[in-house]
């Protein structure tokens, strides 16, 4: 993967929820080179720095970006119109490492469980990952992909139908209990881990608030049979690993979200 600076024309920006938007544009290069967990560094008008957005999904040569209005940059982007130009550097970042089942697991056709855990808008990069999984693993009668969606309430649950269409098993948790279980994805995760067959290797992939990662990590203590990759965010400068601005604290010192991440092994963090 080699990042490139490209200009694209906005194909569509649609409002998905009150403050969540889905942007799409055509870029053969980005569509071909992007991997789940990669991000795009997008320059919008009237801001100084670029803003990082994960690749939400790829369809043919079309790229989709799902984002929530969080500040000035995302607010401006949400007002872009079809045909307007965006300057993008990408794809960037390390992406999720997709752990393939070991040969003996494949023979047994059991023993591996992939769980995607999305806190709110954290579903953005996980859709692309789910897309990738359903394209590759399920063809081999591999176990279903489970995805846990957390949201404040029923209205804010994102991507549920689409993930179901992909063939994922979707469970929802809402803080007010208006849909799925009342609580957070942590409750759902605990259930998934309790109800699995003994000897199963579990791969967790997550994106969401840092507090959620911390809670996941609490559950994983002493669980060698569960590994977990989490996608972090941080205020970012260059996105290319040169300015050292987007660091986070890890067990091995400060690491750059743009270059060492955005995906980290949760056990390298705590």
């Amino acid at each position: 993967m080699k990042p490139k600076q490209v200009t694209v024309k906005v194909d569509k920006i649609e409002r998905v929820k009150t403050d969540v938007f889905l942007l799409s544009f055509v870029s053969g290069y980005l569509a071909k080179e992007s991997r789940p967990g990669n991000f795009l560094h997008i320059k919008v008008n009237s801001t100084i720095l670029r803003r990082p957005f994960s690749v939400h999904k790829v369809s043919g040569n079309k790229i989709y970006v799902l984002f929530r209005i969080r500040g000035r940059g995302t607010d401006i982007l949400s007002r872009y119109k079809k045909g307007e130009i965006l300057d993008i550097i990408g794809p960037l970042g390390n992406g999720f490492e997709v752990r393939r089942p070991k040969t003996e697991d494949r023979r047994l056709k059991t023993g591996i469980q992939n769980i995607l855990i999305a806190g709110g808008i954290g579903v953005a990069p996980l859709m692309f990952l789910a897309q990738h999984f359903t394209k590759t693993l399920n063809t081999n009668h591999q176990p279903l992909i489970t995805i846990l969606l957390g949201a404040k309430n029923k209205k804010e649950v994102l991507c549920e139908q689409e993930l179901k269409k992909l063939g994922c098993k979707v469970y929802v948790a809402t803080e007010d209990g208006s849909k799925g279980i009342k609580g957070t994805v942590i409750g759902l995760l605990e259930r998934s881990l309790w109800t699995r067959e003994p000897g199963t290797q579990t791969n967790l992939y997550s994106c969401g608030p840092k507090e959620m990662f911390w809670n996941i990590n609490q559950i994983l203590e002493g669980r060698k049979d569960v590994n977990c990759q989490v996608s972090f965010e941080q205020f970012m400068g260059c996105g290319l690993g040169i300015c050292c601005a987007c660091t986070i604290e890890t067990k091995n010192g400060y690491k750059k979200v743009c270059k060492d991440g955005p995906v980290f092994d949760i056990r390298d963090i705590w």
Binding site: I48, L49, F235, C244, A245, I248, Y254
Partner: peptide, 17 residues
């Protein structure tokens, strides 16, 4: 090692690092 994050913040017309 550098300073504790966050290390960068954009304001209206400039960037603090």
């Amino acid at each position: 090692a550098g300073n504790p994050p966050p290390r960068i913040f954009e304001t209206e017309c400039g960037v603090i690092n």
